[in-house]
Simulated scan of single mutants.
Amino acid sequence: MTAEEGGSVRVDAWIWSVRLVKTRSAATAACRGGHVRVNDERVKPATPVRVGDEVRVRLEGRERVVVVRRILRKRVSAPLAQESYTDNSPPPPPREALIPVARRDRGAGRPTKRDRRELDRLRTLPPTP
């Protein structure tokens, strides 16, 4: 199998192999951009990850917090990947909490004064409790 009990692996390869990011290059870019932390320290892509380390990955406005349970060197299926870490991530915000985005159809032309007022009204809605 591709798992090991001891040893270490690069952090970018590990977050790719457990399917936290879609591609290896995206994992490397996330590390270089400061979106990956291991034990509360910003890391470079080649930083080693060991069993028991806490890895925080911040992508698309959501932070994933996982604890390494198994070292993987190659990408595996989703069920095997989920067994390789303990997920301590906060739950994602509900869809209702997202602010409605005012969008116009492509090619609809410039908004009229009435359309602009409606867009302004949508943008200044008070947050719902």
Score class of each variant (00 low, 15 high):
residue 123 R to M: 12
residue 51 V to I: 13
residue 7 G to L: 11
residue 87 D to V: 12
residue 53 D to Y: 13
residue 65 V to L: 09
residue 111 P to A: 04
residue 28 T to S: 14
residue 69 R to E: 10
residue 66 V to T: 09
residue 5 E to K: 15
residue 120 D to I: 03
residue 95 R to H: 05
residue 111 P to L: 00
residue 108 A to Q: 03
residue 16 W to E: 02
residue 12 D to P: 01
residue 129 P to I: 11
residue 7 G to H: 07
residue 7 G to M: 09
residue 2 T to L: 11
residue 23 T to H: 12
residue 92 P to Q: 15
residue 119 L to Q: 09
residue 113 K to M: 09
residue 70 R to E: 02
residue 23 T to Q: 14
residue 37 R to V: 06
residue 105 D to P: 12
residue 120 D to N: 09
residue 52 G to R: 13
residue 69 R to L: 11
residue 71 I to P: 10
residue 63 E to L: 08
residue 18 V to S: 11
residue 105 D to I: 15
residue 86 T to C: 02
residue 31 C to I: 07
residue 94 P to Y: 13
residue 51 V to F: 10
residue 34 G to M: 07
residue 60 E to I: 09
residue 46 A to I: 05
residue 66 V to W: 01
residue 75 R to P: 06
residue 124 T to C: 00
residue 102 A to W: 07
residue 33 G to A: 11
residue 16 W to K: 05
residue 67 V to D: 02
residue 110 R to Q: 02
residue 74 K to I: 03
residue 43 V to Y: 01
residue 107 G to F: 05
residue 36 V to H: 07
residue 74 K to Y: 06
residue 68 V to P: 01
residue 33 G to W: 05
residue 124 T to K: 08
residue 97 A to R: 10
residue 84 S to L: 00
residue 28 T to K: 15
residue 96 E to R: 14
residue 128 T to Y: 11
residue 48 P to I: 00
residue 74 K to R: 06
residue 62 R to C: 10
residue 121 R to G: 08
residue 44 K to V: 03
residue 10 R to K: 12
residue 15 I to P: 10
residue 26 A to C: 11
residue 60 E to A: 14
residue 105 D to M: 15
residue 111 P to S: 00
residue 75 R to Q: 08
residue 90 P to C: 02
residue 26 A to H: 14
residue 3 A to P: 12
residue 57 V to A: 02
residue 126 P to N: 07
residue 14 W to K: 01
residue 23 T to M: 13
residue 4 E to Q: 14
residue 104 R to Q: 00
residue 17 S to C: 14
residue 37 R to K: 12
residue 75 R to D: 05
residue 78 A to G: 05
residue 88 N to P: 08
residue 8 S to Y: 14
residue 57 V to G: 01
residue 125 L to I: 13
residue 83 E to M: 14
residue 33 G to D: 05
residue 40 D to L: 07
residue 60 E to P: 05
residue 75 R to A: 00
residue 62 R to S: 13
residue 90 P to Q: 03
residue 98 L to Y: 08
